[in-house]
Simulated assay, not measured.
Amino acid sequence: MAKESTKLNSEYLYNRDDFQITPKMKQSFDKYGYILVRGLLDNEEVEKVKKVFENATSEQILEDNKMRVSDGQGREAKLIVWSHPGNDVSGMVSRSQKVAGTCEKLMGEEVYHYHGKLVSKEAFTGGSHLWHQDYGYWYKNGCLLPNMMTVFIALDKCTKGNGCLQILESSHTCGRLDHELMHGQQAIPDIKRVEQIKERCPLVWCEMNPGDALFFHSNMMHTSGQNSSPNRRWALLTAFNTKSNNPTKQHHHPCYTPLTKVPDAAIKECENYTLDLSQMGFVHPSQSQTSRPSLTKEQEEATTRS
């Protein structure tokens, strides 16, 4: 029988004065496919990031570029995707040593910003994400190796009730599984295979507080449930690719672009709360090549005209 738990085997506490990736943490990432760092962003940093996405100017930008992804059960998750980190507070987070620098140490080489995302599951209506691997998407973009990863930073409290992440520990060692389009999401179609993997790779619920960060390998299998609670669930995600894994073709995410990293202190020093349309390169729903999210009527008309 498959095991389920809320206890993570690869969990660490962020210490602002002495945080570094130790050999033990690297070994843990290689074994389990992730590390969870509690308190990577403190309360002030979280509030600064939320201020970027909650102001009136940003709300319009987000609305214009929102992808609504159906879960096949009458609900939707919402995504906003961009190509490059801007000079606002959220960009400082993605470019910081404790985010990008940590990824370089975990991957063992230079990384670049593959794309960023704001993922939202609104109260009572937020949809689920089906079982998948990020590399299941990215493989189709000409990335030949799974030497890629994602950093999931909770901006709101993530619980079982509002659709927190669920992961299969060590499932990244199973390699890439085939993915097909299901309800507008690239997902693993062979659920029997997933159930078999659960027998050996425990399912863990990643309940997180605002500021907690999950660094995970691109082949780790994960899913998340619907949000049936009265509490919103927002998360900032940054995907990184390694320089040596530069895609073999042009697609809707960037090829290798050198990343200018910043000190961690830049997050609190930054007072720019305006998303930069020219710098970030938002990905319109009609441009996505790896999924077909639900479009608004206006977006469908724009796609038809183009």
Rank of each mutant, 00 (worst) to 15 (best):
Y114E: 07
G116A: 05
L118F: 08
V119A: 07
E122N: 13
E122C: 05
F124L: 13
F124E: 13
G127M: 04
G127L: 08
H129I: 13
H129S: 14
L130R: 08
L130K: 14
H132M: 09
H132R: 01
G136Q: 01
Y137G: 06
K140G: 06
G142D: 00
C143P: 02
L144S: 11
P146A: 12
P146R: 10
P146T: 09
M148W: 04
M149P: 05
M149I: 14
T150G: 15
T150N: 15
V151R: 09
V151D: 07
V151F: 11
I153D: 05
A154D: 09
D156F: 05
D156A: 01
K157S: 11
K157V: 09
C158N: 06
C158Y: 05
T159A: 12
G161M: 02
G161Y: 07
L165Q: 01
L165V: 14
Q166A: 09
Q166T: 11
I167S: 08
L168H: 06
E169F: 04
S171M: 05
H172K: 13
T173A: 04
C174G: 03
C174R: 15
L177I: 00
L177W: 00
L177N: 11
D178W: 00
L181R: 08
L181T: 09
M182E: 08
H183E: 13
G184S: 06
Q185N: 12
Q185I: 02
Q186Y: 08
P189R: 00
K192P: 02
Q196S: 13
I197R: 01
I197H: 03
P202V: 11
V204D: 11
V204K: 15
V204Q: 13
W205Q: 02
C206N: 08
C206H: 04
E207R: 06
E207Y: 07
M208S: 14
P210H: 04
D212H: 11
A213N: 05
F215L: 10
F215E: 15
H217V: 06
H217Y: 00
M221E: 02
H222K: 09
H222A: 10
S224C: 01
